[in-house]
Design a binder for these strands. Sequence first.
DNA 1: GAGGCTGTCTACAACCCTGTCAACAGCGAG
DNA 2: CTCGCTGTTGACAGGGTTGTAGACAGCCTC
Lengths: 223, 223
Amino acid sequence: MAGAMARPKKAPPPAPRRRRTAEEARAAIMDAAERQLVAAGPGGIRLQDVAREVGVSHPTVLHHFGSREGLVDAVVSRALDALHADVTAALADASAGEDKVAALLDGVAAALSARGQGRAMMWLALGSPEPQRDDLRLREQAEAVDALRRARFGATGEATLEDSQFMVVLAASTMLAHSVMGAHLLHGAGVRGAKAPARFRAWLARLLVAHVERCGGATGQGA
Amino acid sequence: MAGAMARPKKAPPPAPRRRRTAEEARAAIMDAAERQLVAAGPGGIRLQDVAREVGVSHPTVLHHFGSREGLVDAVVSRALDALHADVTAALADASAGEDKVAALLDGVAAALSARGQGRAMMWLALGSPEPQRDDLRLREQAEAVDALRRARFGATGEATLEDSQFMVVLAASTMLAHSVMGAHLLHGAGVRGAKAPARFRAWLARLLVAHVERCGGATGQGA
DNA sequence: GAGGCTGTCTACAACCCTGTCAACAGCGAG
DNA sequence: CTCGCTGTTGACAGGGTTGTAGACAGCCTC
């Protein structure tokens, strides 16, 4: 014990110093920060925690991102871009089919829950009351849905666009809410079982398909 | 100026000291804390901010609630109780009618947005991945919906309960998501106008009613 | 009117977080 | 091999937060 105290002031072994490329370091730091973003929100990201998780000291994080805010911005941007890419991929995959709608919803749900992107979106929405970035491109998707319906049922009505928009909004709201509290809601309503979320998505898909089949290309407004 | 400096160490005018009853003080503090809860989440509640908003010093807050955590618990409990009461009232009001469903959704939306209770629920859900308190009593409501359907269409099928549960879950998810990011979603999808949320709720009501009319008391499972 | 219960305050202590600074140390270029 | 760029670090400063301690002061009771 006394022997270990040989160095009175220089203390512990200097610890081997790894040196990554700037890009590697940034990526590793952002990965850790993203996990914190999903778990605790943008306000919950702590430089010290991020640094510890990566295995560096916190000034290193500041060196790469300038400030805490810089880190948060970078992480949020990257997460939203990834989300957009995943959702787009899921939509492209399934939009060809007809009532592959269930598969489409499954794909979106997977994109939202894979790395907690749905939670991240919700954190961001809670943080800023005003609409901010149109990250989900809902408008494009509503127009795509509308086009599909017209192609299938003919352009019987013009007011239909809003109907398609509402369908997209409904699907998006539901998938987002479920990525955050799906388990709460299903369990709370008394629906049990590990496959409950999938059954719910399938049910929702049937509901949407039935709505389209019932209304065709015409608006349901006046009905 | 020099005359005002008469007291070298006791400084500013002692400031008139109001004395409330413990109950009044607790209520005022919880009101302020609730506003912060809605705006910044449970983790965003700062004793100093709460105290400043009420017009007291932060040790007063600690005196009444013991600790920050005590305050948060009290505020969360009170908010959830209020939400439950409001939602229950909205449901009781409208459940008598038939397709007063739109009015029912309006009532729930109002209960969720009036004092930000929907945002509060979302903050809490984000904070705890595991299902926690069954604050919305979704189970009861699903059973009520199921009972109504059976009363109206007869007990044609037994598997119907899950259908009703899903309807309630869908409505709840959507209303919750919209209380947080309804504006984002509608605006993002291209739906404009101050009455867009109300139109969306009316549309959702028609969708749900149509579903029930189409499926009656029998399950939509095998269809 | 006197006394006590308790709501309230000022001042202080301990902790945590972000950001700065000067110095150290890989790793590639010459 | 030497030099320099830059990723990396420990130490420190400044601000902010929760929580404590002791004194002050309304308001109710006797």
